[in-house]
Design a protein around this nucleic acid. Structure first.
Lengths: 340, 340
DNA sequence: TTGTAGGCGTTATCAA
DNA sequence: TTGATAACGCCTACAA
């Protein structure tokens, strides 16, 4: 066993140690059948002795493409996206690719920086939940030739594959559920509306509300600056500040983090859930069901979202007849104790 | 603007398009000052025209090292580890490195596969929360020369840098807190004990218990097969199945996911928290404070854990006088409503 | 200021 | 079955 110093052993070193040519070592690596058993073992021994590890950069330079997929997440702190990432990873692992995870944190500059790096690395494909699906940066990636699939959003044009869940329908389901429960004053909590997800869930909510014939102003929109727990708490305070007769008896939150924050505020300030305030979240993350009052939520097929996106990007990468497609999954309302 | 087909443009193509030599293009990229303004703009224009993107593999092959750090997580579904990852990522971004995230899912085989891939990619350094910190695979990485830092664990030997939090102390703090609250029958919920974190938290709990002079058998150990929400629910059922006079009045869970599951079971089956069952978790993930009954928990400095580990691995990678060190952070008990 | 040449580690082709 | 060689794209001496 040899302690490495300097740079690590190359095929050339292995060849020298085994007393064979460099080409033979390469054959042992890539077409073992072509090498006689005797020399093969000699080469393998030399590799073990020297602690040889293939250099992926060199391989990649030679082959022109890497064995890596990348996913640029919108918010790594949101379990929804880590679940999507798990779906991607398992699909990637099936075809022996590894997954590079990046986090834009909803920042266009960070997103752009990641995309540049990924193209430099010649990743096989990029999956991204973009800050803005119609941004020019995405089209630049396409122009460069790197396959790209949009996850959890749909762009205006159809020049990309995308995998998303019907957010408009999800918003409708949530509000229809609350209407079914007899609520006539409901809050929509969410923002910023620069996020398409938020916009469409709100539109769906409005559509359901309009269909009910209730006065428009009784769907109270409470904007937030991000989809995080703390914003949910603050929204709770704002609701509590409303005069009794204008205060909604139910809230539909644009995601579960907000809903959990709202729930926490409610319980902390003695508001009974669902009797005084019913709550519906969105995403159905694991913690929604595990909340003190289990949360009703709109479930999205997270893992499937990821694995489907991975399949699409791989098809785009390898199938010359690839055609872009927009896959739209259907969300589903999961009713739990927070809406009775 | 040109639509790419075939392979993407290289420095050679740019040189041809700009009517200069290949060396000049390289100078524009790496020593712009050495190039006259006129030729520089000509070259830059050609790059834009061709949609040139540097090939990182070639660069790396030449330079011998990559611009990437990697973190092998133990469980990507646990917010604790994603928070650690965020700490690493921000430290890496500070020095212009990108972070490759892998997930072993507590599986030795997956862990090993990831490590091989990472070495092949010649990452600058590997951070890992290992399945087993004393495993031979880690030493093999070291032997190959890739800097490696152990995160959230400490190995037996001190041949690696490590960054961890004092789990023994954390266990003690949790149980002392429950003893302070007057509990005389307490459950420890956690497992598998192949996880060192679990073993040490349990040891700490036992030490505190022994110091109290209470009968040993009144610290009831409820083993689980994983540190996930669902196992917490099942532990709740097992507790409920105990005869009243042997049933603990408080539980210390080896992490917050278990605690959330237990809490959910308790609320669902009408057990009042903390009056009938007090609960202390571990990690203080964001969802602990946001639980229906906010959870008391042992807080670990997650982001700091990550950023410190990143600094250590970079020092090991670049400082010839690097000395391995074991950094041990101190945990802190955060008391909330779940223990009154 | 610009151009030329060699090499990083791997693989594939072709010849022996 | 094995060996020699060229090429992938980039960077850095060194030469002009």
């Amino acid at each position: 066993m040899v302690v490495q110093q300097g740079r690590s052993a190359s095929v050339k070193d292995v060849a020298a140690a085994a007393g064979v040519s460099l080409g033979t070592v390469s054959n042992v690596l890539n077409r073992p059948a072509r090498v006689s058993t005797a020399t093969r073992t000699r080469v393998l021994d030399a590799m073990a002795e020297l602690g040889f590890v293939r250099n992926e950069s060199a391989r990649q330079l030679r082959s022109g493409t890497s064995r890596t997929l990348a996913y640029v997440m919108l918010d790594a702190g949101n379990p929804f996206f880590t679940d999507v990432a798990q779906g991607i990873e398992s699909a990637a692992a099936d075809v022996d690719l590894s997954l590079l995870l990046c986090n834009s944190g909803n920042g266009p500059a960070r997103e752009r920086a990641h995309l540049v790096l990924l193209q430099q690395q010649r990743v096989q494909g990029i999956l991204i939940t973009p800050v803005d699906p119609d941004s020019e940066v995405l089209r630049e990636v396409r122009r460069h030739g790197t396959p790209l699939v949009i996850v959890d959003r749909i762009g205006d044009d159809q020049s990309f594959c995308s995998v998303a869940v019907d957010d408009f329908l999800g918003g409708r389901l949530a509000v229809e559920h609350l209407l079914d429960r007899g609520h006539t004053r409901v809050a929509f909590i969410g923002g910023p509306t620069t996020l398409g997800q938020v916009r469409e869930r709100l539109e769906g909510a409005r559509a359901a509300w309009a269909a009910s014939g209730l006065p428009e102003e009784d769907l109270v929109v409470v904007p937030t600056s991000a989809l995080v727990v703390n914003e949910g708490r603050e929204a709770g305070q704002r609701l509590a500040g409303l005069p009794q007769r204008r205060r909604p008896t139910a809230a539909f939150c644009a995601n579960d983090l907000l809903a959990l924050g709202l729930l926490q505020h409610a319980i902390g300030s003695g508001v009974r859930v669902p009797e005084e305030l019913a709550i519906v979240g969105y995403d159905d993350i694991e913690f929604a069901g595990a909340a003190g009052v289990p949360l009703s939520s709109v479930r999205q097929p997270r893992q499937e979202l990821g694995s489907t996106a991975a399949r699409l990007v791989l098809d785009e990468a390898s199938n010359p007849d690839h055609e872009h497609q927009q896959v739209l999954f259907t969300p589903e309302l999961v009713a739990r104790a927070s809406t009775l």
